[in-house]
Design a protein around this nucleic acid. Structure first.
Lengths: 133, 133
DNA sequence: CGACATTACATGCGCGTGCATGCAATGTAC
DNA sequence: GTACATTGCATGCACGCGCATGTAATGTCG
């Protein structure tokens, strides 16, 4: 009887810890994400999702099928499609057909896109150092 | 000369670590937030923001000025106002006038709201244990 | 007292998101 | 070969968000 009470109390403590960790995650994420999004938008004219897509694209090499690019991202397929739309409209990436599988679409950064990414990367480092340093 | 190279390399390593931590934060947050939002919506008819508002309201005691409730939340003032709208429309909280300062508005959970919160809390614990355990 | 700034909240607006769907290309079964 | 399922991407739609603004109540200064 006494033992059951102890176990229940331990479980309750564990739950409170989880909730606290979750609230920390919520506030930290929103603070960093908002700061990044606003600063990138103001200083480089691109939002957070566009930058993340461009960043992972350049990380993956010069050319990447859209599906592969989306496979390790947090965005849904439609959100990524539209983020690439916005990047393309600014001339930062270019879509091209894939001959092997004509359903797939290659995305490649342009020279302008590479430059923009380099500029924005230092902004990202600054914001991340401010919030996560 | 050699020393400058070493420092630059150390700074680069530190930046890569920050970016990696940030990507972890992005993916973890989105995974937990999406799972929580969908499960709460499906099993209890409320979204993540509504639950967070209700949760903090009950944590703060029975009655709370809207401004105070928003002070430790990640949501903007307008987003919180509308989250409370949705909670009120479902009869889970009630707004009331504040006699001291008639600009302020009290928010209080109803009996139904307290019950819904208790039910949803166990769902939250389950999801958090799955993702952060 | 009156004029102006500030606070607390609600709301119009544009935008990015996920979901569901559409469409064309590919794979699979017979 | 034909019929059907599946894959990769684009798009209509509803919705929640932040920003800017509106509105009423309060504080402040002369």
């Amino acid at each position: 009887m006494r033992a059951r009470g102890i176990f229940r109390r331990m479980a309750a403590v564990r739950e409170r810890e989880l909730v606290e960790r979750w609230r920390d995650l919520l506030t930290t994420y929103n603070a960093v994400a908002n700061a990044l999004d606003q600063t990138l938008q103001r200083e480089h004219g691109i939002g957070l999702s566009e930058f993340e897509a461009l960043d992972r694209l350049i990380d993956a090499g010069d050319k990447c099928v859209l599906k592969v690019l989306g496979s390790d991202m947090y965005l849904s397929q439609s959100a990524l499609s539209r983020a690439v739309d916005r990047l393309e409209r600014q001339g930062l990436v270019a879509r091209s057909m894939c001959d092997n599988d004509r359903r797939s679409i290659y995305v490649a950064p342009t020279a302008t896109g590479r430059q923009r990414h380099a500029d924005a990367s230092s902004t990202r480092s600054r914001i991340l150092a401010d919030h996560l340093g």
